[in-house]
Design a binder for these strands. Structure first.
Lengths: 190, 190
DNA sequence: AATATAAATGAATAAATATTCATTAAAGAA
DNA sequence: TTCTTTAATGAATATTTATTCATTTATATT
């Protein structure tokens, strides 16, 4: 009996991400995905019910992927600034090394594919970071601003750096990482 | 002789932006745009050669629109911080009041519609701000970091605030505006 | 090696979408 | 008012894209 090849699913995901990065969710066709993944179009329908399911399941994979990377090497017992820097670096590294996934998530956000419930799931991903920021406020280390906006400020900077590194082909040296972190830290610190 | 109605073009643009905000560039069809704009599908082809031209010309309108708003009430003779705050506010206000345009520009960036030259044009839009930041460095008011990354930091924060105001239905009070500006300023100041 | 089972194929079909065009409506000129 | 010109219409057509399915291929089991 021939068995489904789990690797094939990854090939399909990779092909989809590559195409979305190149020409957006709007430009994706099942034929193009199949060709890029090196399979027949019919094969896509063995692994996925239809185009929607492909997009939605890939979205799910990308989100779970992010979640597992963001809090790597982070412990709630770290001193505040250490934990904060760890998470800041993790998110930036993740956005850079998996840029197409980030773009895909962003594009899905404004597409007919993702529903409101899924958006809430995405938001929950940042809960441990919100917790850390709350702690930073309790310890009077950072500004007394609604945690939601502290998070917004932090994430905004990171996202834009990642985008511009990729779009404008910039190299991000250790020094530049430090400078960027410094700006973020000076922005939130009390 | 019947004459073309310039207002009709604006109706078509408005319809397109509304649909892109609702379901992304991927979800747009000419029929949907026509219906939303209250015209027949054939009418779209009187004003635009085809779908591509509609998207590209709308993109152009949005970009020009941004450019004219960003530097409103700004003079190079303003003291640095005054000028900086003016532009910061203008960009945020513009992103908020014309959110669909911002989303449209962002989505176009990752689509088959926009070419590299156009992306460069978009980047040029920020030149006066880059100039101002350079001046801030010369006056030792802000950090001595590559101007490109100072700009990135500033824009990232603004964009994320605008997105989250809209996505999560937040109200941005004057106090919150001030707090957000303070974070940005503390981040870049020397 | 023969058989059975499910994956894989890709041309064929269905469905969605872009575009055209014969016709009608409007508005300025004669 | 009539004529002329162009906008506007929307059903018809062309094109693109999603999906199906009869057939082939691969592999585990006997």
């Amino acid at each position: 009996m021939k068995i489904k090849d789990d690797n094939k699913i990854n090939d399909i995901y990779a092909a989809t991400l590559k195409l979305v990065k190149a020409s957006g969710l709007a430009g994706i066709t099942m034929q193009a995905v199949a060709k890029e993944a090196g399979v027949a179009t019919g094969t896509l329908y063995i692994y996925f019910q239809n185009k929607d399911e492909l997009i939605i399941r890939l979205f799910d994979v990308c989100v779970k992927n992010s979640a597992s990377n963001f809090f790597k090497d982070y412990s709630v017992r770290d001193p505040f600034k250490v934990g904060f820097r760890t998470i800041w670096s993790n998110i930036l590294q993740h956005r850079l090394s998996r840029f197409p996934e980030s773009i895909f998530i962003e594009q899905c956000f404004h597409s007919p594919f993702i529903d409101e419930d899924t958006k809430i799931t995405l938001k929950k991903m940042f809960d441990p970071l919100l917790e850390l920021l709350n702690r930073g406020k309790r310890e009077h280390l950072i500004k007394n601003i609604d945690t939601f906006w502290l998070l917004t400020f932090m994430i905004g900077g990171i996202n834009e750096v990642a985008k511009r590194v990729v779009y404008f082909n910039k190299k991000l040296s250790v020094e530049l990482m430090d400078q960027n972190f410094q700006m973020c830290w000076d922005g939130i610190k009390a």
